[in-house]
Amino acid sequence: MAENELLQQMEKFQEEAIAALEKVKDESSLAQWRVMHLGKSAFISQIFTRLAEISKEDRPKIGQAANLVRNKLEAAINQRTEELKAKALAESLENEKIDVTLPGRQPHPGRLHPATQNMREILAVLSQIGFEIFRSPEVESDEYNFELLNIPAYHPARDMWDTFYTTDPNVLLRTHTSPGQIHAMHLFAPESIRVALPGMCYRYEQVSARSEIQFNQIELLAVGKNITFGDLKGTLQEFAFRMFGNNVRTRFRPSYFPFTEPSAEMDVECFLCGGKGCPMCKNSGWLEILGCGMVHPTVLRNGGYDPDVYSGYAAGMGPERITILRHYVEDIRYFWGNDIRFLEQF
């Protein structure tokens, strides 16, 4: 065979092989192509096996050319293989595509009641400043709820509480957590006291969007030998900072509770409008948050402390009121109504 003719045949073989490769669409045809064009019986492989038959002077040239063709075809099939893999992956990704805008499946998350969430936040702050939780009964004696707190029967101060009485005239539903003050004093005396008294209280009232027959209260009580009105202001200011934001302004104004003297109301700068005035603070810039005062000497004495030696302060607030303010709750009945549409929002 003439040297030129062989070179031409190789060139033709290469052209035909490349053209055939372009038509290959899948893996099995790819394997077939490899057998046909790079396999043992392929034309180009035959050239190598029959190289001995070629004249000695033509041998290197033919061998070189055949090598070139084989390398080209190897490269071509490798490239084609990659192309087909990429294509297959692209196709399968395309097939797996989902509508990412479809809604997610609903988990069933558990939640604490908003009153508990708020109560925990307040109690956590109080615990940071040294007050531990103390619980006392909700059904109370007249003695603990009123008498021992310096509120004798028929005293005008009794008008401050609308009371649910039970069929036992000496037993009532506590109107405030303050009977806990006496219970705590009886337990702690003569040690000093720093307790937070949380819990449900009751008020004889028609239920409406603005008033409830049961509500939580949290009270603080500190009793010791060196406790002053200044400490009361300092502690409550610290509480307000931690609860409503650092450096929120507070204001104390005179008030009256039979079990404290002097008594005060603490207002906190409205955290909804920053004190500029809004409907929630009735445009005043202030929110009435808690009532407080120095424990009345009679109460200290009833608790087992000598009022000439010991002093103390007490403060009380309504946690639901804070939730109402913070979340613009329009109807106080939502709390104990337990409609999931309300509970789910906290």
Partner: peptide
Amino acid sequence: YDHIPTTRMEDEL
């Protein structure tokens, strides 16, 4: 009340 300084409790825990 505003003129009474705010203080920290010195009493022991």
